[in-house]
Amino acid sequence: MIVADKKPIEEIIEEIKDDEKILILGCNECVTVCEAGGKKEVGILASALRMYFLNQGKEVKIDEKTLERQCDHEYLEEIRDVMDQYDAVVSLACGVGVQFMAEKYQSTPVYPGVNTCFLGVTEERGLWTERCQACGQCILARTGGICPVSRCAKRVFNGPCGGSTKGKCEIHNEIDCAWQLIVDRLKALDRFDDYENLIPLKDWSFERAGGPRKVVREDVQQ
């Protein structure tokens, strides 16, 4: 899932301080799971903002709504009828949702309510860690299901760098060396011979380096 973290309330207040009718818009997908932008977080933020502005003597209307997703037309259409009631929207969706909102509703400012961090997993409640950088050419089949692109600080292929010490990365002793994990996993799979097979040079044009990307699937297009 896409992992996001809550923005400080002060930062959100700074963005919306001149607006009088605001919609706090949550998303029921990834940001709900990582407890940054779901219905509950919408409620808490809206309540805090209402109290803040009331305390400042400002009359500000703050409404709450949470959509199933903010990255699909059909769900964003659900608010079309009410959008003209607001001066601004604070979207607690990931950066994708914020941008799609902004594209769809050109005349209403949309502010991000979360910081979108990475594609990751819930290791335990309150602990999310990165697993994928959406590089566009997955090599997990060759690396025992462990990704050197997202989990190695240098994103090196074909074995660890010289900074791997006792299974940890040189950038921090709490970070596992991705290549140590890969070696251990290949051994566990009884596929350690695969380690000798060199991974060819990666075409980074499929990654962000190639500019904004798109996936076109004519077979499912209408």
Partner: peptide, 8 residues
């Protein structure tokens, strides 16, 4: 923390 932030 929230109440401190919003001066309550």
């Amino acid at each position: 923390k929230i109440l401190d932030t919003i001066n309550i």
